[in-house]
Design a protein around this nucleic acid. Structure first.
Lengths: 236, 236
DNA sequence: ACGACCAGATCGTAGAACAATCCTTCCCGG
DNA sequence: CCGGGAAGGATTGTTCTACGATCTGGTCGT
Protein backbone atom coordinates (compact mmCIF):
# COMPACT_ATOMS: atom_id res chain seq x y z
CA UNK A 1 0.00 0.00 0.00
CA UNK A 2 2.88 2.37 0.78
CA UNK A 3 5.91 2.76 -1.42
CA UNK A 4 9.35 3.31 -0.06
CA UNK A 5 11.24 6.46 -0.84
CA UNK A 6 14.32 5.88 -2.92
CA UNK A 7 16.80 8.72 -3.17
CA UNK A 8 17.54 8.79 -6.86
CA UNK A 9 20.37 10.95 -8.06
CA UNK A 10 18.36 13.46 -10.05
CA UNK A 11 16.26 14.91 -7.26
CA UNK A 12 18.85 14.11 -4.69
CA UNK A 13 20.84 16.84 -6.39
CA UNK A 14 17.71 18.92 -6.56
CA UNK A 15 17.19 18.72 -2.81
CA UNK A 16 20.84 19.57 -2.33
CA UNK A 17 20.15 22.69 -4.36
CA UNK A 18 17.33 23.48 -1.99
CA UNK A 19 19.89 23.93 0.73
CA UNK A 20 20.54 27.37 -0.73
CA UNK A 21 17.02 28.39 0.28
CA UNK A 22 17.78 27.67 3.92
CA UNK A 23 19.09 31.13 4.63
CA UNK A 24 16.10 32.98 5.99
CA UNK A 25 13.77 32.38 8.91
CA UNK A 26 13.53 29.29 11.06
CA UNK A 27 15.16 26.23 9.55
CA UNK A 28 12.35 23.87 10.48
CA UNK A 29 9.75 26.06 8.80
CA UNK A 30 11.85 26.49 5.70
CA UNK A 31 12.30 22.75 5.53
CA UNK A 32 8.53 22.42 5.82
CA UNK A 33 8.16 24.92 2.97
CA UNK A 34 10.47 22.92 0.77
CA UNK A 35 8.80 19.62 1.52
CA UNK A 36 5.38 21.16 1.01
CA UNK A 37 6.40 22.41 -2.39
CA UNK A 38 7.93 19.09 -3.38
CA UNK A 39 4.80 17.28 -2.32
CA UNK A 40 2.47 19.57 -4.24
CA UNK A 41 4.76 19.27 -7.24
CA UNK A 42 4.29 15.56 -7.13
CA UNK A 43 7.94 14.73 -6.46
CA UNK A 44 6.82 12.82 -3.39
CA UNK A 45 3.66 11.03 -4.42
CA UNK A 46 0.95 10.12 -1.90
CA UNK A 47 1.80 6.92 -0.10
CA UNK A 48 5.52 7.57 -0.28
CA UNK A 49 7.39 7.07 2.94
CA UNK A 50 9.73 9.93 3.79
CA UNK A 51 12.76 8.49 5.49
CA UNK A 52 14.29 10.65 8.18
CA UNK A 53 17.77 9.52 7.33
CA UNK A 54 17.60 10.10 3.56
CA UNK A 55 16.01 13.51 3.85
CA UNK A 56 18.28 14.54 6.69
CA UNK A 57 21.27 13.73 4.54
CA UNK A 58 19.85 15.24 1.35
CA UNK A 59 18.93 18.51 3.04
CA UNK A 60 21.95 18.62 5.28
CA UNK A 61 20.02 19.27 8.48
CA UNK A 62 19.71 17.51 11.80
CA UNK A 63 17.08 14.95 12.59
CA UNK A 64 15.50 17.20 15.20
CA UNK A 65 14.91 19.96 12.72
CA UNK A 66 13.54 17.57 10.16
CA UNK A 67 11.18 16.05 12.68
CA UNK A 68 9.87 19.49 13.61
CA UNK A 69 9.14 20.09 9.94
CA UNK A 70 7.38 16.73 9.77
CA UNK A 71 5.15 17.67 12.68
CA UNK A 72 4.13 20.87 10.93
CA UNK A 73 3.20 19.14 7.69
CA UNK A 74 1.45 16.32 9.49
CA UNK A 75 -0.69 18.89 11.25
CA UNK A 76 -1.54 20.41 7.89
CA UNK A 77 -2.71 17.05 6.68
CA UNK A 78 -0.08 16.64 3.97
CA UNK A 79 1.87 14.02 5.88
CA UNK A 80 0.66 11.16 8.00
CA UNK A 81 2.60 10.24 11.08
CA UNK A 82 2.51 6.58 12.05
CA UNK A 83 4.07 5.81 15.39
CA UNK A 84 7.37 3.98 15.06
CA UNK A 85 6.81 3.59 11.33
CA UNK A 86 7.61 7.03 10.01
CA UNK A 87 5.86 9.71 8.00
CA UNK A 88 4.09 9.13 4.70
CA UNK A 89 2.71 11.47 2.14
CA UNK A 90 -0.98 11.39 2.90
CA UNK A 91 -3.09 9.08 0.78
CA UNK A 92 -6.68 10.29 0.97
CA UNK A 93 -9.71 8.07 1.06
CA UNK A 94 -12.92 8.70 -0.82
CA UNK A 95 -14.43 9.63 2.54
CA UNK A 96 -11.75 12.32 2.77
CA UNK A 97 -12.75 13.63 -0.62
CA UNK A 98 -16.38 13.84 0.38
CA UNK A 99 -15.38 15.60 3.57
CA UNK A 100 -13.16 18.05 1.75
CA UNK A 101 -16.01 19.01 -0.54
CA UNK A 102 -18.42 19.26 2.37
CA UNK A 103 -16.33 21.82 4.21
CA UNK A 104 -15.29 23.64 1.06
CA UNK A 105 -18.95 23.98 0.17
CA UNK A 106 -19.68 25.55 3.52
CA UNK A 107 -16.68 27.86 3.55
CA UNK A 108 -16.62 29.06 -0.04
CA UNK A 109 -20.37 29.42 -0.34
CA UNK A 110 -20.37 31.09 3.07
CA UNK A 111 -17.78 33.54 1.79
CA UNK A 112 -20.13 34.54 -1.01
CA UNK A 113 -23.25 34.52 1.10
CA UNK A 114 -22.59 37.32 3.56
CA UNK A 115 -21.38 39.55 0.78
CA UNK A 116 -23.05 42.90 0.30
CA UNK A 117 -20.51 44.34 -2.11
CA UNK A 118 -17.78 42.46 -3.93
CA UNK A 119 -14.33 43.78 -2.93
CA UNK A 120 -12.51 45.01 -6.02
CA UNK A 121 -9.13 43.55 -5.09
CA UNK A 122 -10.28 40.00 -4.47
CA UNK A 123 -12.47 40.11 -7.57
CA UNK A 124 -9.46 41.17 -9.64
CA UNK A 125 -7.47 38.24 -8.26
CA UNK A 126 -10.27 35.88 -9.19
CA UNK A 127 -10.30 37.33 -12.71
CA UNK A 128 -6.53 36.93 -13.00
CA UNK A 129 -6.85 33.31 -11.96
CA UNK A 130 -9.46 32.76 -14.65
CA UNK A 131 -7.18 34.30 -17.26
CA UNK A 132 -4.27 32.15 -16.14
CA UNK A 133 -6.41 29.03 -16.35
CA UNK A 134 -7.57 29.84 -19.86
CA UNK A 135 -4.12 30.61 -21.24
CA UNK A 136 -2.76 27.45 -19.62
CA UNK A 137 -5.59 25.48 -21.18
CA UNK A 138 -4.80 27.02 -24.56
CA UNK A 139 -1.28 25.63 -24.42
CA UNK A 140 -2.47 22.31 -23.03
CA UNK A 141 -0.77 22.62 -19.66
CA UNK A 142 -3.46 20.95 -17.56
CA UNK A 143 -1.36 20.92 -14.45
CA UNK A 144 -1.18 24.69 -14.62
CA UNK A 145 -4.93 24.79 -15.25
CA UNK A 146 -5.47 22.92 -12.02
CA UNK A 147 -3.21 25.32 -10.15
CA UNK A 148 -5.05 28.31 -11.60
CA UNK A 149 -8.41 26.81 -10.70
CA UNK A 150 -7.27 26.42 -7.13
CA UNK A 151 -6.08 29.99 -7.18
CA UNK A 152 -9.55 30.98 -8.31
CA UNK A 153 -11.17 29.18 -5.39
CA UNK A 154 -8.65 30.71 -3.04
CA UNK A 155 -9.74 34.11 -4.29
CA UNK A 156 -13.34 33.18 -3.56
CA UNK A 157 -12.37 32.26 -0.02
CA UNK A 158 -10.51 35.55 0.32
CA UNK A 159 -13.77 37.34 -0.42
CA UNK A 160 -14.87 36.37 3.07
CA UNK A 161 -12.42 38.89 4.44
CA UNK A 162 -11.50 36.39 7.12
CA UNK A 163 -7.90 35.38 7.54
CA UNK A 164 -8.90 32.07 9.10
CA UNK A 165 -11.29 31.24 6.30
CA UNK A 166 -8.60 32.00 3.75
CA UNK A 167 -5.98 29.90 5.50
CA UNK A 168 -8.34 27.02 6.14
CA UNK A 169 -9.30 26.91 2.49
CA UNK A 170 -5.65 27.09 1.55
CA UNK A 171 -5.01 23.97 3.58
CA UNK A 172 -8.03 22.22 2.12
CA UNK A 173 -6.90 22.95 -1.42
CA UNK A 174 -3.45 21.65 -0.60
CA UNK A 175 -5.00 18.41 0.60
CA UNK A 176 -7.14 18.24 -2.48
CA UNK A 177 -4.06 18.48 -4.63
CA UNK A 178 -2.93 15.21 -3.11
CA UNK A 179 -5.94 13.67 -4.80
CA UNK A 180 -5.24 15.29 -8.14
CA UNK A 181 -1.72 13.92 -8.07
CA UNK A 182 -2.86 10.33 -8.17
CA UNK A 183 -5.53 10.74 -10.83
CA UNK A 184 -4.31 9.69 -14.19
CA UNK A 185 -5.73 12.32 -16.53
CA UNK A 186 -5.47 15.89 -15.23
CA UNK A 187 -7.20 17.30 -18.28
CA UNK A 188 -10.39 15.41 -17.57
CA UNK A 189 -10.18 16.83 -14.07
CA UNK A 190 -9.82 20.52 -14.76
CA UNK A 191 -11.04 21.27 -18.25
CA UNK A 192 -14.78 20.82 -17.67
CA UNK A 193 -14.89 23.72 -15.22
CA UNK A 194 -13.21 26.44 -17.26
CA UNK A 195 -16.44 27.76 -18.72
CA UNK A 196 -18.34 27.42 -15.47
CA UNK A 197 -15.65 29.25 -13.53
CA UNK A 198 -15.72 32.14 -15.97
CA UNK A 199 -19.49 32.30 -15.76
CA UNK A 200 -19.20 32.33 -11.99
CA UNK A 201 -16.67 35.13 -12.18
CA UNK A 202 -18.90 37.19 -14.46
CA UNK A 203 -21.70 36.88 -11.94
CA UNK A 204 -19.34 38.04 -9.21
CA UNK A 205 -18.04 40.94 -11.26
CA UNK A 206 -21.65 41.94 -11.93
CA UNK A 207 -22.20 41.99 -8.16
CA UNK A 208 -24.72 39.18 -8.14
CA UNK A 209 -23.33 37.22 -5.21
CA UNK A 210 -26.54 35.24 -4.79
CA UNK A 211 -26.43 33.80 -8.29
CA UNK A 212 -22.70 33.23 -7.96
CA UNK A 213 -23.27 31.17 -4.85
CA UNK A 214 -25.79 28.99 -6.61
CA UNK A 215 -23.40 28.46 -9.48
CA UNK A 216 -20.72 27.54 -6.96
CA UNK A 217 -23.02 24.98 -5.39
CA UNK A 218 -23.57 23.35 -8.76
CA UNK A 219 -19.83 23.38 -9.38
CA UNK A 220 -19.24 21.50 -6.15
CA UNK A 221 -21.90 18.94 -7.03
CA UNK A 222 -20.29 18.23 -10.38
CA UNK A 223 -16.67 18.35 -9.30
CA UNK A 224 -17.16 16.10 -6.30
CA UNK A 225 -19.04 13.48 -8.28
CA UNK A 226 -16.52 13.50 -11.08
CA UNK A 227 -13.50 13.39 -8.81
CA UNK A 228 -14.94 10.49 -6.86
CA UNK A 229 -15.53 8.64 -10.09
CA UNK A 230 -12.00 9.26 -11.31
CA UNK A 231 -10.36 8.41 -8.00
CA UNK A 232 -9.97 4.72 -7.44
CA UNK A 233 -6.64 4.14 -5.74
CA UNK A 234 -5.69 1.02 -3.85
CA UNK A 235 -6.71 2.63 -0.56
CA UNK A 236 -10.18 3.36 -1.99
CA UNK B 1 2.85 43.21 27.45
CA UNK B 2 3.95 39.65 28.16
CA UNK B 3 4.31 38.18 31.61
CA UNK B 4 7.05 35.81 32.49
CA UNK B 5 6.22 32.32 33.66
CA UNK B 6 7.16 31.69 37.27
CA UNK B 7 7.23 28.10 38.42
CA UNK B 8 5.38 28.35 41.70
CA UNK B 9 5.37 25.33 43.94
CA UNK B 10 1.70 24.48 43.76
CA UNK B 11 1.42 23.77 40.06
CA UNK B 12 5.04 22.76 39.84
CA UNK B 13 3.93 19.73 41.84
CA UNK B 14 0.84 19.51 39.65
CA UNK B 15 2.92 19.25 36.51
CA UNK B 16 5.09 16.65 38.20
CA UNK B 17 1.88 14.69 38.74
CA UNK B 18 1.21 15.00 35.04
CA UNK B 19 4.27 12.89 34.41
CA UNK B 20 2.17 9.88 35.31
CA UNK B 21 0.04 10.52 32.22
CA UNK B 22 3.07 10.16 29.97
CA UNK B 23 2.77 6.42 29.65
CA UNK B 24 0.75 5.95 26.50
CA UNK B 25 1.17 7.09 22.91
CA UNK B 26 3.75 9.51 21.57
CA UNK B 27 5.38 11.61 24.22
CA UNK B 28 5.27 14.83 22.24
CA UNK B 29 1.56 14.55 21.62
CA UNK B 30 0.83 13.68 25.20
CA UNK B 31 2.84 16.68 26.29
CA UNK B 32 0.80 18.77 23.89
CA UNK B 33 -2.38 17.35 25.42
CA UNK B 34 -1.25 18.28 28.90
CA UNK B 35 -0.24 21.78 27.93
CA UNK B 36 -3.47 22.28 26.00
CA UNK B 37 -5.47 21.31 29.03
CA UNK B 38 -3.47 23.53 31.33
CA UNK B 39 -3.91 26.44 28.98
CA UNK B 40 -7.66 26.02 28.68
CA UNK B 41 -7.87 25.64 32.45
CA UNK B 42 -6.26 29.02 32.76
CA UNK B 43 -3.16 27.78 34.56
CA UNK B 44 -1.08 29.42 31.83
CA UNK B 45 -2.81 32.70 31.09
CA UNK B 46 -2.55 34.37 27.69
CA UNK B 47 0.66 36.35 27.35
CA UNK B 48 2.58 33.97 29.61
CA UNK B 49 5.92 32.90 28.29
CA UNK B 50 6.51 29.17 28.48
CA UNK B 51 10.17 28.61 29.16
CA UNK B 52 11.65 25.54 27.56
CA UNK B 53 13.91 24.95 30.51
CA UNK B 54 11.27 25.22 33.27
CA UNK B 55 8.76 23.04 31.48
CA UNK B 56 11.37 20.53 30.44
CA UNK B 57 12.40 20.15 34.05
CA UNK B 58 8.85 20.12 35.42
CA UNK B 59 7.67 17.47 32.97
CA UNK B 60 10.88 15.50 33.01
CA UNK B 61 11.24 15.36 29.24
CA UNK B 62 13.86 16.47 26.77
CA UNK B 63 13.92 19.81 25.04
CA UNK B 64 13.38 18.23 21.64
CA UNK B 65 10.19 16.52 22.71
CA UNK B 66 8.94 19.68 24.36
CA UNK B 67 9.68 21.68 21.25
CA UNK B 68 7.73 19.23 19.12
CA UNK B 69 4.77 19.72 21.44
CA UNK B 70 5.21 23.49 21.15
CA UNK B 71 5.06 23.26 17.37
CA UNK B 72 1.80 21.38 17.54
CA UNK B 73 0.14 23.87 19.85
CA UNK B 74 1.50 26.83 17.92
CA UNK B 75 -0.07 25.40 14.80
CA UNK B 76 -3.37 25.12 16.64
CA UNK B 77 -3.17 28.78 17.54
CA UNK B 78 -2.92 28.31 21.28
CA UNK B 79 0.74 29.22 21.43
CA UNK B 80 2.65 31.88 19.59
CA UNK B 81 6.17 31.10 18.49
CA UNK B 82 8.50 34.10 18.30
CA UNK B 83 11.85 33.40 16.74
CA UNK B 84 14.64 33.40 19.29
CA UNK B 85 12.24 34.65 21.97
CA UNK B 86 10.30 31.58 22.87
CA UNK B 87 6.68 30.54 22.92
CA UNK B 88 3.89 32.49 24.57
CA UNK B 89 0.32 31.62 25.31
CA UNK B 90 -1.50 33.40 22.54
CA UNK B 91 -2.95 36.79 23.36
CA UNK B 92 -5.70 37.49 20.87
CA UNK B 93 -6.44 40.88 19.39
CA UNK B 94 -9.90 42.29 18.84
CA UNK B 95 -9.31 41.62 15.14
CA UNK B 96 -8.83 37.97 16.05
CA UNK B 97 -12.14 37.97 17.88
CA UNK B 98 -13.91 39.42 14.88
CA UNK B 99 -12.24 36.85 12.67
CA UNK B 100 -13.16 34.00 14.98
CA UNK B 101 -16.80 35.02 14.87
CA UNK B 102 -16.71 35.47 11.12
CA UNK B 103 -15.56 31.91 10.47
CA UNK B 104 -17.70 30.43 13.22
CA UNK B 105 -20.67 32.13 11.66
CA UNK B 106 -19.91 30.55 8.32
CA UNK B 107 -19.17 27.10 9.67
CA UNK B 108 -21.88 26.71 12.29
CA UNK B 109 -24.58 28.32 10.21
CA UNK B 110 -23.38 26.27 7.26
CA UNK B 111 -23.74 23.15 9.36
CA UNK B 112 -27.39 23.98 9.95
CA UNK B 113 -28.08 25.16 6.44
CA UNK B 114 -27.58 22.01 4.41
CA UNK B 115 -29.60 20.04 6.90
CA UNK B 116 -32.60 18.11 5.66
CA UNK B 117 -33.18 16.08 8.81
CA UNK B 118 -31.61 16.65 12.22
CA UNK B 119 -29.51 13.64 13.26
CA UNK B 120 -30.83 12.28 16.54
CA UNK B 121 -27.42 11.64 18.08
CA UNK B 122 -26.00 15.10 17.55
CA UNK B 123 -29.28 16.67 18.65
CA UNK B 124 -29.16 14.67 21.87
CA UNK B 125 -25.63 15.90 22.52
CA UNK B 126 -26.78 19.46 22.01
CA UNK B 127 -29.60 18.89 24.46
CA UNK B 128 -27.23 17.42 27.02
CA UNK B 129 -24.98 20.46 26.67
CA UNK B 130 -27.97 22.72 27.31
CA UNK B 131 -28.86 20.77 30.42
CA UNK B 132 -25.31 20.93 31.68
CA UNK B 133 -25.21 24.66 31.13
CA UNK B 134 -28.43 25.21 33.04
CA UNK B 135 -27.48 23.10 36.04
CA UNK B 136 -24.07 24.79 36.15
CA UNK B 137 -25.79 28.16 36.05
CA UNK B 138 -28.10 27.09 38.89
CA UNK B 139 -25.10 26.49 41.13
CA UNK B 140 -23.36 29.66 39.94
CA UNK B 141 -20.43 27.90 38.26
CA UNK B 142 -20.03 30.26 35.32
CA UNK B 143 -16.85 28.69 34.15
CA UNK B 144 -18.73 25.43 33.69
CA UNK B 145 -21.50 27.32 31.94
CA UNK B 146 -18.99 28.58 29.43
CA UNK B 147 -17.65 25.08 28.89
CA UNK B 148 -21.14 23.73 28.37
CA UNK B 149 -21.97 26.50 25.93
CA UNK B 150 -18.92 25.60 23.89
CA UNK B 151 -19.99 22.00 24.01
CA UNK B 152 -23.33 23.10 22.61
CA UNK B 153 -21.72 24.88 19.71
CA UNK B 154 -19.49 21.90 19.09
CA UNK B 155 -22.62 19.79 18.81
CA UNK B 156 -23.97 22.25 16.25
CA UNK B 157 -20.79 21.88 14.22
CA UNK B 158 -21.07 18.09 14.48
CA UNK B 159 -24.44 18.33 12.78
CA UNK B 160 -22.54 19.05 9.58
CA UNK B 161 -21.44 15.45 9.52
CA UNK B 162 -18.01 16.62 8.44
CA UNK B 163 -14.99 15.61 10.45
CA UNK B 164 -13.05 18.63 9.25
CA UNK B 165 -15.82 21.05 10.14
CA UNK B 166 -16.03 19.53 13.60
CA UNK B 167 -12.30 19.69 14.18
CA UNK B 168 -11.96 23.19 12.80
CA UNK B 169 -14.70 24.43 15.10
CA UNK B 170 -13.06 22.62 17.98
CA UNK B 171 -9.89 24.58 17.33
CA UNK B 172 -11.79 27.84 17.00
CA UNK B 173 -13.56 27.31 20.29
CA UNK B 174 -10.25 26.53 21.95
CA UNK B 175 -8.91 29.83 20.67
CA UNK B 176 -12.01 31.62 21.84
CA UNK B 177 -11.47 30.26 25.31
CA UNK B 178 -8.23 32.20 25.38
CA UNK B 179 -10.37 35.30 25.20
CA UNK B 180 -12.74 34.19 27.93
CA UNK B 181 -9.79 33.57 30.23
CA UNK B 182 -8.77 37.22 30.27
CA UNK B 183 -12.24 38.70 30.66
CA UNK B 184 -12.94 39.63 34.23
CA UNK B 185 -16.55 38.51 34.71
CA UNK B 186 -17.38 35.12 33.19
CA UNK B 187 -21.01 35.35 34.31
CA UNK B 188 -21.63 38.40 32.19
CA UNK B 189 -20.12 36.45 29.31
CA UNK B 190 -22.15 33.28 29.40
CA UNK B 191 -25.40 33.89 31.27
CA UNK B 192 -27.14 36.03 28.64
CA UNK B 193 -27.21 33.17 26.15
CA UNK B 194 -28.73 30.41 28.25
CA UNK B 195 -32.29 31.18 27.21
CA UNK B 196 -31.36 31.80 23.61
CA UNK B 197 -29.43 28.56 23.37
CA UNK B 198 -32.38 26.61 24.71
CA UNK B 199 -34.69 28.30 22.26
CA UNK B 200 -32.28 27.42 19.48
CA UNK B 201 -32.20 23.85 20.64
CA UNK B 202 -35.98 23.62 20.70
CA UNK B 203 -36.07 24.80 17.11
CA UNK B 204 -33.54 22.14 16.20
CA UNK B 205 -35.40 19.43 18.05
CA UNK B 206 -38.55 20.49 16.22
CA UNK B 207 -36.66 20.02 12.97
CA UNK B 208 -36.85 23.67 11.93
CA UNK B 209 -33.25 24.09 10.84
CA UNK B 210 -34.01 27.28 8.95
CA UNK B 211 -35.32 29.08 12.01
CA UNK B 212 -32.49 27.66 14.09
CA UNK B 213 -29.97 29.11 11.69
CA UNK B 214 -31.53 32.53 11.94
CA UNK B 215 -31.49 32.30 15.71
CA UNK B 216 -27.84 31.32 15.52
CA UNK B 217 -27.06 34.34 13.37
CA UNK B 218 -28.61 36.60 15.99
CA UNK B 219 -26.65 34.82 18.70
CA UNK B 220 -23.41 35.54 16.87
CA UNK B 221 -24.34 39.18 16.43
CA UNK B 222 -24.99 39.60 20.13
CA UNK B 223 -22.12 37.51 21.43
CA UNK B 224 -19.52 39.11 19.21
CA UNK B 225 -20.57 42.63 20.10
CA UNK B 226 -20.66 41.88 23.79
CA UNK B 227 -17.35 40.05 23.86
CA UNK B 228 -15.66 42.87 21.99
CA UNK B 229 -17.04 45.34 24.51
CA UNK B 230 -15.87 43.27 27.47
CA UNK B 231 -12.44 42.56 25.99
CA UNK B 232 -10.05 45.41 26.46
CA UNK B 233 -6.62 43.94 27.20
CA UNK B 234 -3.35 45.78 26.88
CA UNK B 235 -2.83 44.35 23.42
CA UNK B 236 -6.29 45.68 22.34
C1' DA C 1 19.60 61.90 28.71
C1' DC C 2 20.98 59.03 25.07
C1' DG C 3 23.27 55.66 22.38
C1' DA C 4 26.99 52.03 22.12
C1' DC C 5 28.62 48.19 24.16
C1' DC C 6 29.00 44.06 27.08
C1' DA C 7 27.55 39.92 29.73
C1' DG C 8 24.03 36.62 30.89
C1' DA C 9 20.15 34.01 29.56
C1' DT C 10 17.55 31.66 26.21
C1' DC C 11 16.65 29.87 21.88
C1' DG C 12 18.10 27.31 17.40
C1' DT C 13 20.42 23.58 15.58
C1' DA C 14 23.58 19.86 15.32
C1' DG C 15 25.21 15.48 16.54
C1' DA C 16 25.85 11.24 19.13
C1' DA C 17 23.92 7.75 21.77
C1' DC C 18 20.64 4.36 23.30
C1' DA C 19 16.03 2.22 23.87
C1' DA C 20 11.83 0.81 21.64
C1' DT C 21 9.53 -0.76 17.86
C1' DC C 22 8.88 -2.61 13.43
C1' DC C 23 10.09 -5.36 9.39
C1' DT C 24 12.46 -9.06 7.13
C1' DT C 25 14.37 -13.31 7.01
C1' DC C 26 15.32 -17.64 8.29
C1' DC C 27 14.57 -21.72 10.79
C1' DC C 28 11.80 -25.30 12.48
C1' DG C 29 7.96 -28.33 13.37
C1' DG C 30 3.74 -30.01 11.58
C1' DC D 1 4.54 -27.38 1.39
C1' DC D 2 2.96 -24.33 4.83
C1' DG D 3 2.48 -21.63 9.12
C1' DG D 4 4.56 -19.97 13.58
C1' DG D 5 8.03 -17.98 15.80
C1' DA D 6 12.61 -16.42 16.93
C1' DA D 7 16.80 -13.77 15.53
C1' DG D 8 18.66 -9.92 13.30
C1' DG D 9 18.88 -5.54 11.07
C1' DA D 10 16.79 -1.18 10.09
C1' DT D 11 14.20 2.78 11.51
C1' DT D 12 12.03 5.58 14.68
C1' DG D 13 11.50 7.74 19.56
C1' DT D 14 13.82 10.11 23.04
C1' DT D 15 17.50 11.89 25.68
C1' DC D 16 21.73 14.27 26.34
C1' DT D 17 25.46 17.45 25.34
C1' DA D 18 27.37 21.13 22.91
C1' DC D 19 27.83 25.51 20.69
C1' DG D 20 26.56 29.43 17.74
C1' DA D 21 22.92 33.01 17.26
C1' DT D 22 19.89 36.15 19.15
C1' DC D 23 17.59 38.65 22.57
C1' DT D 24 17.50 41.18 27.10
C1' DG D 25 18.94 44.15 30.44
C1' DG D 26 22.27 46.90 32.45
C1' DT D 27 26.59 49.71 32.37
C1' DC D 28 29.51 52.99 30.68
C1' DG D 29 31.03 56.99 28.24
C1' DT D 30 29.89 61.02 25.89
Amino acid sequence: MFYDLVVTEEWGARLAGDRALLDRGSTAERVADILRQRITEGVFLPGTRLSEESLREALGISRNTLREAFRLLAHEGLLEHQLNRGVFVRLLSTADIRDLYAIRRILECGALRNLSTVPAEAAAEAGAAIEAAETAAARGDWGAVGTANMRFHQAIADLSGSRRVAETVRGLLAELRLVFLVVADPRQLHEPYLAGNRALYELLAAGDARAAEEALQRYFDDAEAQLLAAYAPAAG
